[in-house]
Design a protein around this nucleic acid. Structure first.
Lengths: 350, 350
DNA sequence: ATTAGCACTCTATCCAAATGAGTGCTAACA
DNA sequence: TGTTAGCACTCATTTGGATAGAGTGCTAAT
């Protein structure tokens, strides 16, 4: 069977209506609210075809139709094509986001939290945002200081003013001169290097260069190298989890509980981040419908994710989680604009 | 009317039974399941009295009775008295906690997260834990370094090796010599001081002492002072929010949504922390029943909080949030033991 | 003071009937 | 041949008793 233009129009109408109401939509509704000027009977025939083709589904005999995952998929794909060409107008909530970002919050985590919150409030869905990973980021500055007799503190600044610090315990006190030399050594050799390039070979060379001194120096260099490489702790901020209660199809205890605990544990959300980063496409926006999502607890939801980039290699993920009947158009639009704003704010090259 | 021993026993029986079942409890049940050997009719009379006194309540005519907030309060108070004297045995979950703590997690936030999680899993209620505030803690070390031409970084180390850092933007570049002097100045004057004592007067004196230099120095001193005083960002970790779905009286959408968003926002939870710290009592454990809680969204819950202390002045709060009919005995016992474990782990003086 | 007994109240449950939205199919129509 | 009106049918939801059951309050007897 063929999916001709009329079927397409009817499918779109069904989906649009269902997005709004959340109720199965019947033939009569379609016949009235479209400009096709067809009777409900004709619509019924077409809908039977659409069902056979797998785009829509009947929850039970004698109910209207609701979109299947396949139907949503088609809808989203065609929508994304259109959006690629047509530029979306700046809507109210986008302006709000802009204002928010322009405040230039000094603390990264504050910024991320408010982005998540704004998204949740504006879309009425749940949102999450991961802190940017700084893989590929360059080392800007290292400072070793003595805190007390056998404790040092290493402060490491990466491009984009990402800070890391770590305490280093040493068994033997380092004199001021050695410390100064170490600082000079570390900074001259490491500054400007992407953290990937700080490997064992480099560390060995550093140690050799400082070799005149005692073993302690070697220890310290090791410790510094380690704390540079240390697991970048991927933080994930979430907001608006309670929005799921606004959608009856997600609000029953079983499902709500599952989704909420996923949001609270955050552990599971990292797989979502990984997945998004791995299959980056041209638009940077990914839509997971139902079972498509890598997080099984969200199999009754749709998830829209976007990859944002702050400066060089600092990539993070934003996600919107809502019912399958989410307003894809609005969500994708909002995310696109948000990405643009973030890019503008932190000057992306491309 | 007087609350004689018999009435007391009946009240206790009503509450105990209600804690288990969550259903209103009738006179017949009491007459059977207590050793009072009284007929249901007698119980009925007593229950009518107890109702008049405000300890129990009838959800509707011809239903059993459930404890009122006042009833719970009496119950909890007498229970706390008994626990003060009698020592609670180490139960299974306590051993588990001990194992957990003995791992001596290197990262504070990891420790806190796992404490919260263990509590939630063991009690089947929701739990929260605040990071310890370091008010009263002393300044151990300050280091100002230049990251690039017009950005400085201040690293501040407090007693207990709490680290803070902040970026400081300066309009004019500082030369190395000035920076060195500033570091010396800050360290000699501030080290060893409790952060409360770093006030405007002290800052003014510092500025005067450094006065020979340009305004920039003043700016930097201000910025440093500010970041020392900066809102200690009270982190709050939560776990087991979805446990509330296990209690039908909290699981309806309205209430669940409210509680969950309080857990997600965390903002509101800080008031709980404040309140707990402010009205510290001898046992260190606080029970809020229904309306007693400072967080209005939890007016249908009971909240049990405990203050823990790691070393000097590092106080934090642990909270268990559940239905009013929570197993107070178990919760209070668990919290008490947990507090002891934490104290033992981080060597408290008292 | 305690208890047995009884009338009464209120909720929850069950069931049958009514409702109504929507379908599929057939036959008529343009 | 595509479209439509009409009709019988299905099924979920709502409605309104009727009933059962839990529990109470009150009274009279012990």
């Amino acid at each position: 069977m063929e999916l001709d233009e009329r079927k397409m129009k009817i499918l779109q109408a069904v989906i649009k209506n269902y997005l709004e109401t959340g109720e199965p939509v019947g033939s009569r509704t379609i016949s009235k609210y479209t400009d096709l000027n067809l009777s409900s009977a004709t619509i019924r025939n077409e809908m039977a075809d659409l069902e056979e083709m797998g785009y829509i589904v009947q929850p039970h005999t004698s109910a209207g139709r609701i979109p299947s995952d396949k139907g949503y998929r088609l809808y989203v794909d065609t929508m994304m094509q259109q959006m690629d060409t047509a530029m979306q107008e700046k809507s109210r909530e986008v302006e709000e986001l802009k204002d928010l970002l322009l405040e230039k919050e000094e603390k990264m985590d504050q910024l991320l939290k408010s982005v998540a919150k704004t998204l949740a409030v504006n879309t009425n869905y749940a949102s999450m945002i991961s802190s940017p990973s700084y893989s590929g980021s360059r080392l800007k500055f290292i400072q070793l200081s003595r805190v007390d007799a056998n404790q040092l503190i290493a402060v490491i600044v990466l491009e984009g003013n990402i800070l890391k610090n770590s305490m280093i315990s040493v068994s033997e006190e380092l004199d001021d001169e050695t410390l100064l030399k170490l600082n000079v050594l570390l900074n001259t050799h490491l500054n400007g290097l992407p953290i990937e390039e700080i490997n064992l070979g480099l560390v060995a060379r550093l140690k050799q260069q400082a070799g005149i001194h005692s073993d302690i120096v070697g220890e310290v260099i090791d410790a510094v190298a380690e704390s540079i490489k240390a697991d970048e702790d991927l933080e994930i901020y979430t907001s608006g989890a309670n929005n799921i209660f606004k959608y009856p199809e997600l609000a029953d205890q079983q499902k709500a509980s599952e989704i909420i605990s996923t949001f609270e544990e955050k552990q599971m959300l990292t797989t979502l981040v990984q997945d998004t980063l791995s299959k980056e496409n041209n638009t940077g926006i990914q839509v997971y419908i139902g079972d498509e999502t890598p997080v099984s607890s969200m199999k009754d939801c749709s998830v829209v994710t976007a990859t944002y980039e702050l400066g060089e290699g600092m990539k993070g993920t934003i996600g919107i989680i809502g019912p399958k009947r989410m307003d894809y158009e609005k969500v994708v639009g909002t995310l696109q604009t948000l990405m643009k704003q973030l890019d503008a704010l932190y000057g992306k090259k491309s």
